[in-house]
Nucleic acid binder design. Structure first.
Lengths: 210, 210
DNA sequence: GTCTATAAAGCGATAGAC
DNA sequence: GTCTATCGCTTTATAGAC
C-alpha cells in the first residue's frame, strides 16, 4: 500500500471516530488527509469502497496492537501498550489469567488511539445492522476475536469442555461491546466499566472451574 | 396527540428500524405515513424535532409493552406478549425468577414490533456516541432499565447486598445490548442469543446467592 | 497521481394555494 | 391542516488539465 492510500485511510479512521460511519463526508476525509476529494475517489472508487477499505485498515491496526497473529485476531480489541494491570511495558504476560484479562481490558483505555479504534469498531457493528455488505468482514473479525478470548480461557481452565469455553468467550466479548458503547457515550465511567468486566471474567473463570 | 401525529411517528419508527436514525429521510417517513413532507414539518418543526418525538414515542411504546410503571421503565426492552418462557398469555408471572428472565428475554423475539423497538433503541445508543444531545434521555432511560432489572434481582436474591445487585444488573443489561446488536445484524441466531443470556442470568443469580 | 472546477443528485426546509 | 411546487444548500462523483 502506498503512503497516500495509508494517509487517506488514517484520515478516514479519524473522521469515523469523530463523526461516525454515517457522518463521514468524503470532503472531510480528504481535508483530514490533506488531499483533494478527486484523489480519494481515484484510490477508492466510491464511498462504499472508502468505507470497506477504512474498516479493513482499522481492523488490521487493532490486530497489530493487540499482538494477535498467534491464535486469533483480536479485531474488537484496543490499542496501545499500557493496560493498567501493572505489567508496564511488557507486552505479553506469561500468566494465562493475566493475559486473558489484559486482552479484554485493552479496549478500556482513555488513549486517543484506543478511543479511535473502539469508536470506529462500534460504529461498524452498529452500522452493520442496516448494511449487510459489512457483515462478512464483521463476522470473520468477530469470530477471530471470540476465538482468541476462548483460547486464553481454555489455557486458564484446561479442564473445561469446548462448548462451555466458547459460550463464555461469546458472553465476555458481547458484554465488552455493551460496556464499550456506554463508556464511549459518556454514560459509564472508564473505571466502572473496567471493574464490571473484570468481575465478569472472574465469574466466568470460576464457573468454568479454575 | 392527533391521529396524524401518531401516524407520522409510527412511520418514523418503521423507517428508523429499516434505515437507522442517521438513514432517516424526511421524504421516506412522509411516504411511509402517507402524507406530504410539508405536513411532517408542520407537526414537528424540523428533523431533530422529528427524531426527538419519534424516540420518545418508541420509548413510550416499549414501556407499555413491557408493562412498566411499577418499579421501572424497561426502555431498553422489547415488545409483544409471547416470550418463549412458557407462560403464554399471562403477562406477568408471579415467580420472581421467571419475571426476571422474562423481562430480559423480551428483547429477543423475532416479531416485527420487537425488532423495530430494539433496532431503534440500539440506534439511539450508537448515535449517542456522536450526539451528546441524546445522552440525557438515554441516561435516564438506561438508569430506569437497570433499576428495573436490579429490582427483580433483589427479589430473587433478598440477601445480596445492594451494590452487588446493581453491578449484576449493569452487567446483564450491557450483555443484553451487546447480544442484541449481534442478533439484529444477523451475526448471532436468536436462540443462541437467548441461551447465552439465560445462562448469564443463572450465573449472576448463583453468584448473588439464591 | 494529483489537482481545479463543475456536473448531478440528494435532501432539508419553506411559500403559498386550498 | 394539508397539499404541490420549489428553493437552496450539501454531498457524491466525474471531466479534463497538468
Amino acid at each position: 500500500m502506498t503512503d497516500r492510500r495509508r494517509a487517506i485511510l488514517t484520515g478516514a479512521a479519524r473522521v469515523i471516530a469523530r463523526r461516525g460511519v454515517r457522518g463521514l463526508r468524503v470532503a472531510d476525509l480528504a481535508a483530514e488527509a490533506g488531499v483533494s476529494t478527486a484523489l480519494v475517489y481515484y484510490h477508492f472508487k466510491d464511498r462504499p469502497g472508502i468505507l470497506r477499505h477504512a474498516l479493513a485498515f482499522i481492523g488490521d491496526r487493532a490486530d497489530r496492537y493487540t499482538g494477535a497473529g498467534e491464535d486469533g485476531h483480536g479485531t474488537g480489541g484496543g490499542t496501545g501498550e499500557r493496560d493498567g494491570t501493572g505489567d508496564g511495558e511488557a507486552p505479553r504476560p506469561s500468566d494465562p489469567r493475566r493475559l486473558l484479562e489484559r486482552t479484554l481490558l485493552l479496549e478500556f483505555q482513555d488513549l486517543p488511539e484506543v478511543r479511535e479504534n473502539s469508536t470506529a469498531w462500534g460504529e461498524l457493528r452498529a452500522h452493520s445492522v442496516f448494511d449487510p455488505e459489512l457483515r462478512d468482514e464483521l463476522a470473520s473479525a468477530g469470530a477471530a476475536w471470540v476465538a482468541e478470548v476462548a483460547g486464553h480461557l481454555a489455557e486458564v481452565c484446561p479442564a473445561a469442555p469446548d462448548g462451555a469455553v466458547t459460550a463464555a468467550a461469546e458472553r465476555l466479548t458481547a458484554l465488552l461491546e455493551g460496556l464499550s458503547v456506554r463508556w464511549l457515550s459518556g454514560l459509564l465511567p472508564l473505571e466502572h466499566a473496567r471493574g464490571l468486566l473484570r468481575e465478569s471474567i472472574a465469574v466466568e473463570v470460576g464457573r468454568l472451574g479454575l
